[in-house]
Nucleic acid binder design. Sequence first.
DNA 1: TTCATGTGCAACTCAACAGTTGCACATCAG
DNA 2: CTGATGTGCAACTGTTGAGTTGCACATGAA
Lengths: 102, 102
Amino acid sequence: MKNAVFVALADPMRRQLLERLAMGPTTATGIADRFPVTRQAVVKHLGALEVAGMVAKERHGREVHYRLQSAPLGEASAWLTSLSARWEQRLLRLKRYVEEES
Amino acid sequence: MKNAVFVALADPMRRQLLERLAMGPTTATGIADRFPVTRQAVVKHLGALEVAGMVAKERHGREVHYRLQSAPLGEASAWLTSLSARWEQRLLRLKRYVEEES
DNA sequence: TTCATGTGCAACTCAACAGTTGCACATCAG
DNA sequence: CTGATGTGCAACTGTTGAGTTGCACATGAA
């Protein structure tokens, strides 16, 4: 699942979709009007985001509204900070070790 | 540049490389011994990570050591948390609005 | 020098993905 | 019902990237 999140985040268009969805739910057609791509392209991207759990569909009549799901974003962010923290901690240990030597 | 970071993070092998590099610098050959892939594959992945600024090369004799650069990880994480925060804030505003109505 | 090890470059295959187009189906307004 | 709008599904093209292989070059050790 985590993999699907990072795969989804790899595409610039999908990141733009996330930025747009952060302002509120929308339909694929509404998005396609403001982007230089087909509605089908938008639908596919939203599908990838849905597989990653970053977006949820909601049908109202004949319209399908997509809304952001922030949980996966938090998980991805947490993994990144954890990785960075492990490295920084290692640098800190090395620094202490060098200072101890002198 | 941000795009290269997310593209680099999209591959499971590269994320494993980052995990490995968080424990300390290594060579491509050393990594290839512990992974079921060719050295060349590792070199290519490390190249992608280098383009993204997440890894730095350092030559010692005939060996090339790769070490983690944590800055881009922090930037990527910051973007994710910012996006999530914007959405959460919007939900909060909506909640306040609804409570005000009643 | 000679050999082994580590690296760099280039070409190739294979699979996955972005984006498009065309058409069918569903839903709302008149 | 009729037309307009929104959506879903499928097939197709073009491109990108992962991984491999082969060979040449550089460096350290005997």
